[in-house]
Simulated assay, not measured.
Amino acid sequence: MVNQKSIDIAKERRTIYQLGKDITLSHEEISELVQNAMIASPTAFHSQTVRAVVLFGEHHVKLWDLTLERLRPEVPTEEAMKATSAKIAGFKAAAGTVLLFRDQAVVKQLEEQFTLYKDNFHDWAEQGLGGFQQLLWTALRENNIGANLQHYNPLIDEQVAKEFAIPENWDLRGQMVFGSIEGPDSGKKEFLPFEDTFKIFE
């Protein structure tokens, strides 16, 4: 029989918006989980282009406060702003956020070092980040911690860099909000039939 425990755990991963602060792992354990997911995720040429910042407590809250302020001039109506504020309040109620980055300095170095593949390194760095996101999200779920993935970049890039002393070469690509599971997940998903998405040659 095929052992697919890791796939079964990954199937349990779902987007969860109703998150709280009642997680059983300590800040140190969460940070170690993020670090281990980083080193276990493959990157092209073993380039290690993935970067992460974990925000807890007031730093987590500050992220979503500055996001709300940055969104304010972009939201067209007062009614829409109320909905946006409620959504941001949901993120603030969670236990923390992992900021996800690509290191563009490494990408540039690879472009110069391996000119034959120059046009691919941005995509490969994004693939590396995607692998890290998937592994981290699955590891959180295995520890009964829910998460959702947000993409307020590039709107908040400048504010985030200033507030958290982010190196100039770190390119913000996403924000993974995590916490205790306080509500339903995104539910059952529909998938395309394999005859449209999969081929095998024997």
Rank of each mutant, 00 (worst) to 15 (best):
A52G: 03
I156P: 11
L100V: 06
F191Q: 08
Q104A: 13
K92G: 04
G20F: 05
A161G: 12
P193M: 10
Q18C: 12
A80S: 06
S26L: 01
E74C: 06
I39G: 10
A165M: 05
E111K: 14
Q109L: 14
V61L: 02
H60I: 10
V160K: 00
R72Q: 13
L135D: 07
N36P: 03
V75W: 05
N169Y: 08
T15D: 14
A44W: 11
F201M: 15
E182R: 04
Q159L: 14
Q35S: 13
D123E: 14
Q175D: 05
Y117T: 05
D123F: 11
S180H: 10
W64I: 06
T197Q: 02
L55W: 10
F194I: 13
G128V: 01
A86S: 05
A147D: 03
L140Q: 01
Q159E: 15
G20K: 08
D119Y: 01
E126F: 05
L55C: 07
A44M: 02
T24K: 15
T197R: 14
Y17K: 02
G90L: 09
A94S: 08
G174C: 00
H151F: 09
K189W: 05
N148I: 01
N144S: 11
G179C: 01
I39Y: 11
H59R: 14
F178Q: 04
N169L: 01
L192Y: 06
E112F: 08
I200C: 14
F91I: 00
E126G: 09
H46S: 12
R14K: 15
A40C: 02
Y117G: 06
N153C: 05
F101E: 11
E79F: 00
F101A: 09
E111N: 08
S47K: 05
E195M: 09
G57Y: 09
S26Q: 11
D119C: 03
I16E: 06
L192A: 13
A147Y: 09
E69A: 09
Q104F: 12
A165P: 00
G131D: 06
G90C: 01
E79S: 08
S180I: 08
A95S: 04
D119T: 03
T15Y: 12
E112N: 13
D196E: 15
Q4L: 12
A83H: 14
P42C: 03
Q159Y: 14
I88L: 02
A86P: 03
Q104E: 13
L149W: 13
